[in-house]
Design a binder for these strands. Structure first.
Lengths: 140, 140
DNA sequence: TTCATTTCTGAAATCATTGCAAATATACAA
DNA sequence: TTGTATATTTGCAATGATTTCAGAAATGAA
């Protein structure tokens, strides 16, 4: 499960991205995180480790990774964007009460569910479910 | 396909929403639109018809409808929210090049694709696909 | 080293969205 | 009809996440 820095570095290079200290740290953080961090969270988490870091750099770097297809950006919560380093096909659930975001396994690929995709080139797919999580359901 | 104002009015009342002039006009516009209008677009479209209309009213009213489950809000484009009056289960595609948003038919319900939903209460589901639309694929 | 290119920084700007308080419309009792 | 309470709309100011920009720093090649 744990991936080495060297591997992550190679992955960046393979994607045509120069592995600067900041980029590698941000990449590692998002990939290892089981949460779904926002740019702000990434910034807070890495500020100390890196000594100096600009929020702008975090935004730019995350955008760079998303464009390169290395991580994905979630817009499941309308008030902020968060990022996901988990590259397996999976769906997301957001609880309307506590706001938690949970990964859900898929039985099949997204596109198997959709008709009429001839002629389309699909580069990204996200399935968002919203409602109440088991925890909030109970104490409702 | 065409729904009368009277029917829409009844639908609002049934949802516990008083059918003011503005609300009815906004509801009709979003329901009839085959596009996926933003609040701004709704505002521009109805400004003349209603004589006076506030952008704030549009935002508030759309939120009211979404909370009542009458329409749904899409966050497929990270830079703005748009609204969808089509109540059939369907997926959305957004072209990365021209920005068009297209409705796609589903073969099955969203939840059939997901594992481990025991204990969850699902109130909303959205499948977002992104990439290139047939038109942009050709002239790529 | 030097030069050119890429990357990072921090402050300022942007812009969709919301908060707020006043104005207006509506419902309904007297 | 009039008065009054409630619901709705309005317009503007404020918010806050995100982006822009121009200069500073780091990096790589020669």
């Amino acid at each position: 499960m744990e991936v080495s820095r060297a591997d992550l570095k190679q992955e960046l290079i393979a994607a045509g991205i120069r592995p600067s200290v900041q980029r590698l740290a941000i990449f590692e953080y998002v990939r290892q995180s089981c949460q779904h961090p926002t740019a702000e969270v990434v910034y807070e988490a890495l500020c100390d480790e890196l000594g100096s870091l600009s929020l702008t750099t975090v935004y730019n770097t995350l955008k760079l990774f998303v464009d390169a297809g290395l991580i994905s950006m979630l817009t499941i919560d309308d008030t902020f964007r968060c990022f996901d380093g988990n590259r397996k096909d999976h769906a997301h659930f957001r609880c309307n009460k506590c706001g938690c975001i949970v990964d859900l396994k898929m039985k099949n690929e997204f596109v198997t569910l959709v008709e009429g995709l001839q002629g389309y080139e699909i580069t990204d797919a996200q399935l968002y479910l919203k409602g109440l999580c088991p925890h909030c359901c109970v104490k409702k």
